[in-house]
Write a protein that binds this DNA or RNA. Structure first.
Lengths: 335, 335
DNA sequence: TTGTAAGCGTTATCAA
DNA sequence: TTGATAACGCTTACAA
């Protein structure tokens, strides 16, 4: 910028005014400055800019588990897009591995002075965040799941997990099923709520809670779900239907059923590509990941622009049931 | 940092030395400084740090088309992971829309002084990049496709598109097919190479080039591929097999075949989730997106660490054929 | 071993 | 309308 000033024969302040269109500059000098900028190939350094007091970095941090999961990828896509429209760039950080990775990633992002954070939290404890948020004054929005810490009152955008699971289970009940298993991926917030919706639907239908029909997996991978499905379907008194809490467990059910050459009524939580092309098209309760990411980014940008304090807002997005076939299979003639 | 210095009763330089472990500091003062850091909750400002001469921002830029595409998502995941291990953060930018979006996004990233760029280019022209790279001295690595510009000699990581397509087509030939259609998504570099491999395989088998068997789509969406497949299979002399150049066109073929209740031998380029769970499991040529992202990030970090100049390196990753059923279907008894 | 000061690229204030 | 200057938070060369 100094080079531009020298070349145009003006002061630094004038160059700044031309670039930002602030203050008043005679058209003549402005033209000279623009020419110099062109010749030198000058580009404003946003890093230096955000060093000034009262300026933020115009950069958001996005922390999530694994971009390979299409659900997270959609959140990221939407957040990046919304941020971009507002002139914000996005630092994407993944914390797939150990629990400590999440807080390390956040420290890293804060060190780069992000103006705000969208966090899709894993299972780790977020009490450290409370301390951070007081100190740093960086707004945080949680997406898909709330923070796992007591006094953390942040904005949060969730899907209607319990409602969706309730609807899925009701759907199976409406098709005559009485023994409905639930395949629960490890204790993330979401799966817990989904289990709740499942239980409520059974209770409301006057069915007893058969705890051996609820399988809580130790890991949420496809193979684990497949193994559990094998055991369920091979048991003495197998369920006639399965409610599966994530798209990965749903995939596991499909694999097991295929291997056993055995049909089973199925409703899964979360939609996935090609669900309608499978031998029995898969009925799902679909939550809108794109909307989740979009709303999270919007809330965050609002906070950054507006006042930082004020109570945490909670947005719950509706989910929708997509009937494709697997959820409409009747139970076998007699059980 | 000044506050820390004041509190610890030392100079700024001493604080810096303690933080970075550079120079020599008596254990006694160091302890005082660390205490002050803890009490104040001080965190180094990486932005300010990278303002100093000789320091880079320890941030990479990643520009790609659409995170919703699992292939891109895998590239991003790998790049973020590799970068993270080296202490680099990643600014992710998507340029899905119009052609201008790509260059705008790059300007944006350069303004934030990224230390290097991984670009998965769309169709836009990259001649502007040549100018940029001279001026900015920012290393660039292209992933999945090279730049579409003449004098741009950058590092690039590619899959063996032509070889893979050649192999896919040979596979269909080996199973007795003589009329093999090719479904080509719009003129990205990759699909062009894949078409080339297809043609070469036919030529080597002594088959004539039947241009009505090659359908180049105007858009690469699933629906377009489904429509084209409809027309192909409904024609007077339909092909007995299809080679599909992307996972989206492959999905289109599957949709059309399903709707027509008609089987067709199929080998697709690029693997996708649940390909093995479909009614006829889909044979694919799989390229390794994770490795693509990893190598791109590695090459970039090398450039950043080492000398910037030197000829562009070209890494071509092998692809592998995964036979699952659809590619092994025989042609109908008589054509 | 430690403190001081200059400079990185901005922008805002102030004076001319 | 314009230019000089201070300040943002850091590192490093130099001096003490």
């Amino acid at each position: 910028m100094r080079d531009v000033a020298t070349r145009a024969g003006v002061g630094l302040g004038t160059v700044s005014r031309v670039i930002n269109g602030t203050g008043s500059v005679s058209e003549e000098t402005a033209e000279r400055v623009r020419a110099a900028i062109g010749e030198i190939g000058f580009r404003r350094n946003e890093l230096a800019r955000s060093l000034r007091p009262g300026q933020n970095s115009r950069t958001l941090g996005l922390l999530l588990g694994d971009l390979t999961n299409p659900f997270y990828a959609s959140i990221a896509k939407a957040a990046v897009e919304i941020a971009g429209r507002a002139g914000y760039a996005v630092l994407v950080s993944t914390a797939d591995e150990d629990p400590g990775a999440e807080s390390r990633a956040i420290e890293e992002l804060l060190g780069r002075r992000v103006a705000g954070l969208v966090i899709v939290p894993g299972q780790s404890d977020h009490s450290y965040l409370e301390r951070l948020m007081r100190h740093e004054q960086v707004p945080v929005v949680f997406a898909d799941r709330p923070a796992t810490a007591a006094g953390l009152d942040t904005d949060v955008v969730l899907a209607d997990n319990e409602g969706g699971a309730h609807r899925a289970t009701q759907h199976l009940l409406a098709h005559g099923h009485r023994r409905i298993a639930a395949l629960v991926a490890p204790s993330y917030y979401t799966t817990g709520r989904r289990l709740r919706g499942y239980r409520r639907a059974l209770r409301e239908a006057g069915l007893p809670a058969e705890e051996n029909l609820v399988v809580t997996l130790r890991r949420g991978a496809t193979e684990d779900a497949a193994g559990a499905t094998h055991r369920l379907l091979g048991s003495a008194n197998p369920p006639s239907a399965v409610f599966s809490t994530t798209s990965f467990t749903t995939e596991g059910v499909l694999r097991a059923a295929r291997q056993l050459r055995r049909g089973v009524a199925l409703v899964g939580f979360d939609d996935f590509r090609m669900a309608d092309l499978l031998p029995v098209p898969v009925t799902v309760v679909a939550s809108d990941a794109v909307e989740l990411g979009r709303r999270a980014a919007e809330l965050l940008l609002e906070r950054i622009g507006g006042q930082q304090d004020g109570p945490g807002r909670r947005v719950v997005l509706p989910v929708r049931l997509v009937a494709r076939g697997s959820g409409e299979l009747p139970p076998p003639g007699r059980q």
